[in-house]
Design a protein around this nucleic acid. Structure first.
Lengths: 220, 220
DNA sequence: GCAATAAGTTAGATTAGGCTAATAATTTTT
DNA sequence: AAAAATTATTAGCCTAATCTAACTTATTGC
């Protein structure tokens, strides 16, 4: 059974993997708030355990086994988040930190029961898909709000930042998953984007905000 | 913040304390399945942190601060157990092991929410009282089933063994908390006791079983 | 294309929490 | 009260996971 620490490394590797599945030690180090030499030595351990491909001075890559293990941790995390929102009444901005703790509980029965009580949900409160018990995860190809064209109408599908601050910002702006958004204008200079939705005729979001809002074109 | 390990030591110390509040290092070692020298060195650490009174070759004793910290862990454990039974549909024989894990989650909001959703319960599924947020715990003076007199009618109030095996045994015998039990006979030789309850006109329980069944005399 | 910067690695130390083997104190038995 | 058994302690070692300082390799900017 993987230690809590290993679970956290696997999860981070999964979340940081780019399109090639690669992650730089440096990124990982910053993301986990753990110094590079520590991360480096952990990569060697994960390599010995068959969880990552590792070669000196190259980015690391999860193996298929590593991906599966990571997905199982992410499954526990996301099921917990939904449970906290749906069954316990927490707001979507509160659940990430609690789930970060609960995800390390070692009891299949516990998470299976959540899954059952929630009716086998497909997405967590932030729009991310739930891996199945074999670690298979549904891939969705949403685009970022600042990659849309002016005039497009899209649906807000997920966030890539689940931090309390970002989600509180969205709450304040009345933006929820499922909301229909019209792209009114994009400022080339700083990638800020003017949009309309619900009774918000015109709001302007910074590039940073738009990068974390994932949308899908309507009727597609 | 106490580590998971320290939380477990404190909980064990609390549960093993005799009427004088004392615990032998040896008992603790057996209970935690950790070798004596390790326990011994941990006692010194807990002493430095002000959680226990410690003198060489004497049993240890929780300080008031230690008792409070222990009670707060026990609070988390017991709230979790009730939540698992009441809100998630687990049997009382399944919850101890899961709660053992969940109790270490560091989030006051999480346990406060449980407490709220459960309507501030006073007892866990095994009949044990829930400490309050200040670590104050209600004392109840139940007696063991094998300390009763023949002819007494008592109510089954709590168990002192929450293991799966013992609780499955009670399930099989239809014995639940709240059941009215009549003591029919006590065998002095081995402390086995013959009782009647519900539609079980006569069942004989061994001394081991009777020691873990706590009861209260009716109308008292 | 080489110097400067950034990223990755090695070496060595630290802390928490565990172990075994040996020793010391206390308690129990004869 | 001495021997035996039990309980507690000390000494020394181990592993997981972290760190800092110093060094090496890659990348980037003139």
């Amino acid at each position: 059974m993987n230690s809590l620490t290993v679970e956290n490394y696997l999860k981070a590797l999964f979340n940081l993997s780019n399109d090639k599945g690669e992650v730089n030690v440096n990124e990982l180090s910053k993301h986990l708030n753990i110094k590079m030499p520590t991360v480096n030595s952990m990569m060697k351990k994960l390599f010995e355990q068959g969880f990552v491909h590792y070669e000196s001075y190259k980015p690391v890559k999860l193996t298929d086994i590593g991906k599966k293990e990571a997905a199982l941790v992410i499954r526990k995390h996301r099921l917990t988040e939904i449970f906290l929102v749906e069954k316990m009444g927490f707001g979507w901005e509160e659940v990430h930190d609690i789930a970060e703790q609960v995800e390390h509980v070692r009891s299949a029965a516990f998470f299976d029961k959540m899954d059952h009580l929630l009716g086998h949900p497909k997405f967590d409160p932030h729009g991310a898909p739930i891996p199945d018990k074999e670690g298979k995860i549904m891939l969705r190809t949403y685009k970022k709000l600042n990659e849309c064209k002016v005039g497009e109408t899209v649906i807000f599908k997920s966030v890539t930042d689940s931090s309390k601050d970002f989600l509180k910002f969205l709450n304040k702006k009345d933006l929820k998953l499922g909301t229909e958004i019209i792209v009114l204008a994009i400022e080339e200079f700083d990638h800020s984007t003017m949009v309309g939705y619900l009774n918000h005729a015109s709001e302007t979001f910074s590039g940073v905000v738009c990068q974390n809002i994932m949308v899908e074109k309507i009727g597609k």
